[in-house]
Design a protein around this nucleic acid. Structure first.
Lengths: 138, 138
DNA sequence: CAGGATCCCGGAGGATACTG
DNA sequence: CAGTATCCTCCGGGATCCTG
């Protein structure tokens, strides 16, 4: 505090690394979803649990998480194909903080709503402002 | 668990909203940085505390956070200009979960390292693999 | 020093079609 | 059903220059 300049949060600091893991793509949501499904579930189920995620993004996210060692992929040699993803011990490590964060969100849903509302307000305002020329009119 | 199909985490569920706030741009890091600086600090200090962030991104993030009501902007009418950003009560609400998350990261630094290592490994492997034709050779 | 305005590029990620 | 391969668009965000 005496020397603000000595406080540096560089690329390798813990906070940034944590964010790189929790905030990349759908990682957190996928972990959460698998957890809610009892620690193991199929691709299709995941996709329906996370409406809005595209097949491509889901596959990509799952691949990366597998590589990271957070989930395990098990293929059953049946037809039609069946693939199950489950949390590894490493993956389970992340459940606690994630659930903590979401629990905090539940408790403070009012604060979250407030922010959402402000964002929407400023978004619609932006439409009334200067955009009535280039794009909107088309 | 009986009916996996009934488990849906749509756009408005708490987890997604939480992530939208914590994982957008540099928001979390800025909150963290201001907090470490005692709840209030100047633009330049922030930029030096967060090496790698561009002026543009910093300003943009600060604007959005101000709009969200998480931080307050105070301009001192001096020359050269001096601007201070401080946490609002709403902003302080976020400090607790953020610090919690980062504290968890400190405790599990080994797990984070493991993941980082795997990512680097697969990244360098990707360079040896199929990329020796189109881009690499140039 | 704080921060607006411009230009511009790379790549994230959706849509679609195909395979086993 | 699970996954790959292509194509194509859009915008996030850096670099640069300019203001008060």
């Amino acid at each position: 505090m005496k020397d603000p300049e000595s406080l540096v949060l560089d690329e390798n600091c813990i906070p940034r690394r944590v964010l790189e893991i929790f905030c990349v793509k759908w990682t957190s949501m996928v972990l959460h979803a698998i957890h809610l499904h009892g620690g193991c579930c199929r691709t299709g189920v995941l996709q329906r649990t996370l409406p809005g995620i595209s097949k491509k993004m889901l596959t990509q996210t799952l691949r990366e998480m597998e590589r990271d060692g957070m989930i395990a992929r098990k293929v059953y040699p049946v037809v039609p194909p069946m693939v199950e993803y489950s949390l590894t011990p490493l993956g389970q490590l992340f459940i606690e903080p994630i659930e903590m964060l979401y629990a905090w969100g539940e408790e403070h849903a009012d604060a979250l709503k407030k922010i959402t509302r402000r964002r929407k307000a400023s978004a619609s305002k932006r439409n009334l402002d200067g955009k009535a020329d280039a794009k909107t009119q088309k």
